[in-house]
Design a protein around this nucleic acid. Structure first.
Lengths: 368, 368
DNA sequence: CCCCATTCTGAGATCGATCTCACATTGGAG
DNA sequence: CTCCAATGTGAGATCGATCTCAGAATGGGG
């Protein structure tokens, strides 16, 4: 026995038994063995016992490749995101994995680095792998021909954190949450409130110079929704909008984020509060203020979107609007499997995951 | 034309063209079409052109499921870790994905939550999916029958961050790096240095009470290697080992970490420096000290293993030993593909990824 | 004693890509 | 003109699970 197993290890090819082997061992046809395993059709007790025994003796495990070849389903879904090592995406991935496990599926993750070409390659690849569905955080809300190709092939798609027309999407209630957060600042007496957000490489330049109102209609991205909430809060309070207090920094140029904060504080009538619309900006803003010993919230209040590990470790602790990436991932996977299950013909449904406002110590009332 | 495409979208089943369709359109046999695509055998220019045209017109993309059915390879590798949302694992995942992409493969990630049963399920699942290889951070260095089953089936395995006998592994130079770090503390005059580490659920209880020397031989885990480095540094400096200054906290009981720090500082001759052997402990220790306004490094110096985003955001900035999870992931995937390529019959090879010591502000010389 | 319904079983087709092999064509050398 | 090599092509097998369908065995009712 030990001799034999050594030999197997040596050759490295202890070929997995197939259904044919099981059938042979049980002395029945492949069809009968399959019926026993699949639990359909008729099988005599005799045959059930023999097949079951053979399965046990051989340690048979069905080949899922062959199965998906036949069935057209793969029990694999794809997750396409900018960067799986990012805290938001890896938490979402975990949520997706947990739901997938429940559904007997596995998850293939692919990174786009926010590049359209990589996203196109990824979707093509996953399609040729016959994934049962796709959760994607699209690079662009405009160029989505490759995503339409996926749905066109009958493969369900759910968009995460972005909204695409005709595609089910799962997003945080960015606009309402931001509006509430800004209202809170206004309630504390702040009238000069800066908005600092990130913008992607592929984004239309119009956005970069602050013409936010131009793209209010149509598909949505978090940064857009958030600035919309910001604008609504200001206008509801009858406060003027100062273009110089709104900045979008290209995401791939981190050093520019510090510049943006600096520029903001150098405006003649500087803001008394900073709203940072994503975790990168929050980090950069805190880092800048702390580096220069600018007191928070003494001189400037700071309020961020998205919670991170360090926001309770630094002093002051940062007040933030929290969105749960894990919950969003779960919600997206739930929608996806609903579609895969067939009930979800309803395309374009929008699922909003609630956010929470965590009041900590980085916001203070304005001194008159 | 538009009518037709609408119809296809409506039915939602624009079935992907197969090689048979390409062959039919080109007016050749499947074999000829396959030869053209596969670039083997003989093909007349005539046929090459016709097939190429047909491929383009139909937008043909080979079905990778069928391909792997035939070839036995799937161009998919698995990554089995405790929790993909953990910063270490998601960075490693990114490294693995990048290498996989280069090799034309994709990555399926699965979570074990540090539970052996889940790890066993995961490996079985991935095996039945015919993955070409597996990167795994094993829950246990003792119970690895399921991992041997994978290698036994001829599927290459690389162990990440843990060392298993007979399996290629990729680890940081935990022992040497820790030894150097402790030497640095000793060089600053510290003689009472605490070691705070985490230990897993599945770990033998012997470890939990601090009998670290008992398991020095055999397979390795980071926490063990690190405490070994700690002991070596002390003994090299002729300093006594005080059991009360060594603590291992079960990883699934975070609140106990704070207790461990408290207990450490309550020892009659308390430590002047804390070495926290992983990011969880570092976080807890910093949190505890900062909460109690215990000055760092005035009263206690803090030195951690593993870098994190917040270590430069807090004051003082934390000095740490950095290991690059991304590099470790890359290295593991490199080893894996070397094995898959066939050259890697050499089992049990150990790849050590270098660490760096980042001196910041949380360590000070001891006052006499 | 016959017939039909029910129960049971296996041969063979199918999914799509790939590869072997047998069978054409050439063309050039002898 | 003959023959063999080089070149070109397609029929069919293969991978493994699943499913259809034909047909066999059994049993009960008429």
């Amino acid at each position: 026995m030990s001799r034999e197993s050594e030999l197997i290890v040596a050759t490295g090819s202890a070929k997995r038994p197939s259904l044919k082997d099981v059938a042979a061992r049980a002395g029945v046809s492949r069809a009968s063995a399959s019926r026993v395993l699949g639990g359909y059709g008729y099988s005599s007790q005799e045959i059930v016992d023999r097949v079951t025994a053979a399965v046990r003796e051989l340690g048979y495990e069905p080949d899922r490749v062959a199965r998906s070849m036949r069935s057209g389903k793969s029990d694999v879904i794809g997750f396409v995101c900018a960067d799986i090592s990012d805290a938001f995406f890896s938490s979402a991935m975990r949520g997706i994995c947990d739901v997938a496990l429940r559904e007997g599926s596995q998850v293939i993750a692919m990174n786009t680095d926010d590049r359209l070409a990589q996203e196109q390659d990824a979707t093509r690849m996953l399609l040729s792998r016959k994934v049962d569905g796709l959760v994607i955080t699209p690079v662009s809300v405009r160029d989505h021909a490759h995503i339409d190709a996926v749905t066109g092939a009958g493969v369900p798609v759910v968009s995460l954190d972005r909204q695409l027309s005709g595609i089910d999407s799962v997003v945080a209630d960015n606009e309402a949450a931001t509006e509430a957060a800004i209202r809170h600042l206004i309630g504390q007496g702040h009238e000069r409130i800066a908005f600092l957000g990130s913008v992607q490489r592929e984004e239309p330049p119009a956005l970069r110079i602050g013409k936010v109102r131009a793209s209010v209609a149509g598909p949505s991205r978090p940064s857009l929704d958030r600035v919309r909430g910001y604008l609504r809060a200001l206008s509801a309070a009858g406060l003027p909008v100062d273009r110089r207090l709104i900045a979008f920094v290209p995401q791939d140029e981190p050093e520019h984020r510090l510049d943006a904060v600096a520029a903001m504080l150098a405006v003649e009538e500087p803001p008394s509060a900073l709203f940072t619309a994503d975790s990168y900006m929050t980090r950069s803003a805190f880092s800048f203020l702390s580096e220069r010993d600018i007191p928070i919230p003494g001189q400037v209040s700071l309020l961020g979107f998205d919670d991170l590990e360090w926001t309770t470790l630094v002093r002051p602790r940062i007040s933030v609007v929290v969105q749960s990436a894990y919950d969003m991932g779960r919600a997206a996977a739930d929608r996806l499997f609903a579609q895969i299950g067939g009930s979800g013909a309803a395309q374009g449904r929008r699922t909003v995951v609630p956010t929470r406002f965590l009041e900590r110590e980085s916001v203070a009332a304005v001194r008159r």
